[in-house]
Amino acid sequence: MKTKVMLIDDDKEFLEEMNEMLLLSGYEVVCIDDAKKAACATLEHEPDVILLDLKMPDKSGFEVADELRYLSGACGAPIIVMTAYFKDELQPLLNLCGVRKCLKKPLHPLDVISQIEEAVAGR
């Protein structure tokens, strides 16, 4: 069975390219372009791994991550966050929200794949 990856980001072009890239790499992909829909979508699709942007309008990645953590049954998929501007101060907050990995933008596709593989393997 294919690994199901859920992408949450407000940038549509980003989602499009990532979607293409992950499909090419043999993953099943669900794209969510609205942070508010993240919780429902997770319950619906039960992804194996979630790629989550930290900076989004309406709802930040931290909030989404925190929410997902408490939707038990929501599969407990590992969350990998993506951010353009990483500060050391953010690390404790990420730990608190149960985030395991952090990818720094601009993402390199090969990095993304290896991180996904690592996360799924360690699940």
Partner: peptide, 11 residues
Amino acid sequence: ELRNPLGVIRT
């Protein structure tokens, strides 16, 4: 603002 588009370009 720049790293996001850069990411898209790269992908």
